[in-house]
C-alpha cells in the first residue's frame, strides 16, 4: 500500500528526515514511536504533500505509484487521510458542507445527495458521542481538543480512505474518548481493510488498536522495527 524509501526531507534549509524506510501493507496497523523532535510529524506531512516539506531524495509510493508530483488534494483523492494533530478552523463552513464538496470533487459521476450525507454524518457523530450541535458550527471553530479529534475521525469515517495517518490522536483525550476513537478506527480496519499509521507516545491506544508492526524513529531515521514487544520495552525503559 505505502512504501517510503530512503526519504530525505528538508524544511526551511534544514534536513529533518535523513533516509526513512517504511512500508505499510493493506489492512495493516503500524505504530510509529520515537522521541520528541525525531521527525514523526514531518513524515506525516511529507506523505500528505505539505509543500513546506521538500523531498530532496528518495520517494513515497502509494499503491505502486510515485506521489512526488501530486498535490495534497490529489493524494487525498487517492485515499490518503491525515487526522491532524492541530486541525485548522474553517469559520462559517460546516463539516457537512466540506464533506459534500470533497465527495463531489472526488467522484464526479455519482451524485452525492446532501440529505443522505446529512444522515450519514449524524449517524457517525452518534457513534463517536459527538454532540450534534457541533455539526452546524464552523468546522473546528471553538471546538475543544477532544471534539477536534473526534471530528477528524468522523470525517475519516465518511471519506473512507485506504490509508489513515493519525498524529498523536491520543494526546489530550479522556479515557472514554480514546476508546471510542480507537474502536471506530479498528472497525474500519476490519471492515474496509484500511491501513493505519499511528503516531503515538503511549501504549494505551495500542491496547485498543493492536499494531502489526512497531517502528521507532530517532533523529530522522527508523532505527528499529518489530512487534508489539517493542512498546512494552519502551514503556519500561524509554528511548535511553
Amino acid at each position: 500500500m505505502l512504501k517510503v524509501k530512503n526519504l530525505k526531507v528538508r524544511v526551511e534549509e534544514k534536513e529533518i528526515l535523513k533516509g526513512v524506510d517504511l512500508s505499510i501493507k493493506q489492512g495493516e496497523v503500524v505504530a510509529l514511536m520515537g522521541p520528541n523532535g525525531s521527525g514523526k510529524s514531518s513524515l506525516a506531512s511529507a506523505i500528505i504533500g505539505n509543500p513546506k516539506y521538500e523531498v530532496i531524495e528518495g520517494k513515497i509510493a502509494f499503491e505502486g505509484k510515485d506521489l512526488s508530483n501530486l498535490t495534497p488534494d490529489e493524494r487525498a483523492n487517492k485515499g490518503i487521510y491525515l487526522a491532524f494533530q492541530y486541525p485548522a478552523a474553517i469559520p462559517g463552513v460546516t463539516v457537512r458542507e466540506m464533506l459534500l464538496s470533497a465527495l463531489r470533487t472526488r467522484n464526479k459521476e455519482v451524485i452525492v445527495s446532501a440529505l443522505d450525507l446529512k444522515k450519514t454524518v449524524e449517524i457517525e457523530a452518534e457513534k463517536l458521542h459527538l454532540s450534534t450541535e457541533l455539526l452546524s458550527r464552523g468546522l473546528n471553530e471553538g471546538f475543544s481538543g477532544g471534539e477536534k479529534k473526534k471530528m477528524e475521525i468522523l470525517q475519516m469515517r465518511v471519506l473512507k480512505p485506504k490509508l489513515l495517518i493519525m498524529d498523536e490522536i491520543d494526546s489530550g483525550l479522556d479515557i472514554d474518548a480514546l476508546a471510542t476513537i480507537a474502536q471506530n478506527v479498528a472497525e474500519m480496519v476490519k471492515e474496509q481493510k484500511m491501513s493505519v499509521l499511528v503516531i503515538t507516545h503511549y501504549q494505551r491506544i495500542l491496547n485498543y488498536l493492536t499494531p502489526d508492526v512497531v517502528a521507532v524513529m530517532k533523529d530522522g531515521v527508523i532505527v528499529e522495527q518489530g512487534g508489539k514487544e517493542i512498546v512494552d520495552r519502551l514503556e519500561k525503559s524509554g528511548y535511553r
Binding site: 509543500p51 487525498a76 485548522a88 478552523a89 474553517i90 470533497a102 471519506l159
Partner: peptide, 12 residues
C-alpha cells in the same frame, strides 16, 4: 486552512 481542506480532497 488551505492545506487542511486540500488534504480532504479539495483542489486549491
Amino acid at each position: 486552512q488551505l492545506l487542511y481542506l486540500m488534504s480532504r480532497g479539495l483542489p486549491e
